[in-house]
């Protein structure tokens, strides 16, 4: 393996949770400004997680702790594979496995909120997993390989609609309205995370940062210009700013959809976008 790409990958792996944290902090700050108030400092998520790590352990049963660690390990494994520019499909399935473990952790306690949250998380998976898999498939179809190494031009040239579909995945994964049925704070008190406290809640939030990094990273793949490092970084920052800005705006002006509305809106929209894009790629000879 070449030294420089591996070294840059390693640096990104170390920075991954911080990047996730900064994006979430900026999200809260800008949301607050949109609501005509001052809002917390940008480093607030860092303070939250460190405070959580310093709290006393209070758990319901041992199983949920094991599943929280399993979730964390799978997501960090996926992130390290991403930074090593490995197979995108494997990364997707590892993220998937992580989410599966989190749902198992939520199911393992006999709590009404937790179980409802887990049910909703499964429905959410039914909505975003096909779209995510189709986005990765369309990347593989356009590039004729699933490894990140093989991407030779900015994917946005061939796959613009796939990027839009990826925004839907981002909204569902990051629990942004109108797709936030799983941690519907006012309905089920953060659903799957209800019975976690202290260190393990901090672990879940940390894993959430890694997940955000991964999804933003997958979107950044669409604008990477191989060979030109500085221009790629600038393009990535611009893309993330634009995309997350739109997501924040939609979050603040929409309300939550019910689960069948979620399935009826998100799935056809995502699948329709990818189908159109795949037909386009096939037409211009990407096959």
């Amino acid at each position: 393996m070449d030294f420089w790409p591996a070294f840059i990958g390693f640096i990104f792996l170390l920075l991954a949770p911080f990047i996730g944290m900064l994006v979430i902090g900026l999200d809260r700050k800008i949301t607050a400004r949109m609501q005509n108030r001052i809002g917390p400092p940008v480093l607030q998520p860092l303070y939250d997680v460190i405070k959580l790590f310093g709290k006393e352990d209070k758990i319901v049963n041992r199983g949920q702790v094991v599943f929280a660690y399993a979730f964390f390990v799978m997501v960090v494994l996926a992130t390290s594979l991403f930074c090593l520019r490995s197979d995108l499909l494997v990364i997707f399935f590892l993220l998937n496995a992580g989410a599966i473990f989190m749902v198992m952790g939520a199911y393992s306690t006999r709590s009404a909120f937790s179980t409802i949250g887990a049910n909703r998380e499964l429905l959410q998976m039914l909505a975003y997993e096909p779209i995510f898999l189709l986005v990765i498939f369309s990347i593989g179809y356009a590039v004729k390989s699933f490894t990140i190494d093989a991407i030779y031009e900015p994917l946005i040239l061939k796959l613009p609609l796939a990027l839009v579909a990826m925004v839907i995945v981002l909204m569902i994964k990051m629990q942004k309205s109108p797709f936030d049925i799983s941690t519907a704070h006012t309905e089920i008190i953060s659903g799957t995370m209800v019975e976690y406290s202290g260190t393990y809640l901090g672990l879940l939030k940390l894993t959430h940062w890694y997940e955000l990094f991964l999804i933003l990273g997958t979107m950044a793949l669409f604008v990477i210009i191989p060979g030109n490092f500085v221009l790629s970084i600038i393009a990535m920052l611009v893309l993330i700013a634009v995309v997350y800005g739109i997501v924040m705006l939609i979050d603040n002006i929409t309300t939550r959809l019910t689960w069948d509305a979620l399935l009826k809106v998100a799935l056809p929209l995502g699948i329709g976008l990818i189908t159109a894009n795949l037909i386009y790629v096939w037409y211009i000879g990407g096959a």
Partner: peptide, 21 residues
């Protein structure tokens, strides 16, 4: 509410004792 905005001190209203200080 935005008028007093205690969220700028990092205060969040959690409905769950396990998450609260």
């Amino acid at each position: 509410t935005p008028y007093y905005d205690i969220e700028r001190f990092g205060i969040l209203n959690k409905g769950n004792p396990k998450h609260a200080d």
